[in-house]
Amino acid sequence: MAMSQIDPVVIDNAESAVSTRNISKNYGDVEALRDLSLEFPRGQLTSLLGPSGCGKTTLLKIIAGLLEPTSGEVEVNGKTVTGPGPDRAFVFQDFALLPWASVIRNVAFGLEMRGMGKSEREDIAAKYIKEVGLGGFEHSYPHELSGGMRQRVGLARALSVDAEVLLMDEPFSAVDEQTRRKFQEDLLALVQNENKTFIFVTHSIEEAVYVSDQIALLLPRPSRVHEIIRPSNFRSKGVDNIRRDPEYLDIVDEIWASLRTYVE
């Protein structure tokens, strides 16, 4: 049943915004990734789904240019990645907020680093703060926010730099279930309306199936792509109906069946 990773997944008429080729990564003796190849089609959302510690964050950081792969290479828009670039923005699993800076300064950080003037960048930051539902908290400090609110600050920071590729490391892990569902819907709208490429790490099978155009199931360490699943048919049926769609439910079951062997 497994779709082999060796023949690259060529997607009908969608070219890849990001491709990773034969990536391996060792941390000393720990082999985190082994020979991992994956294509991320432009304008679509790809989820990385896999057990904890399998190397999802590692892969994301390699794509971001924050880590160097031990071997293999990453291409973004046909150019080999050598470091971080303006074409990619990162949402960190541990938020990575500056505790001494207010929400608005945290959100504007990426724009500040791009040399944008203060009033301009704060206008943009304010817009995205509202968008993630933090309006009114612009001048709060991170420790005054709940875990979920902090996570949204990280999200707003990544959105505000308007990068082509968004690397999201469990961006909804700390928000409550209601907000999470709203964000999932917002994310779907974002994927539809903006021609951005999303790479999305999650632990939740349902979330992955709900939001993804493509799901890559990763094996435990050393991590390779076990299977690629492309839910396609229920996407057009409207956000309210997806969770009742038989295909949606089938895919959730199918993924669970694949993964449970590694949990047991």
Binding site: L66, F92, L98, G110, E112, M113, V161
Partner: peptide
């Protein structure tokens, strides 16, 4: 993680020292 965040958002080495 904060320094890494700086790099991801294209902070120069100097900016990382000064701002982070």
């Amino acid at each position: 993680s904060m320094k890494e965040m700086g790099k991801a958002f294209l902070a120069t080495d100097l900016a990382i020292i000064l701002k982070i």
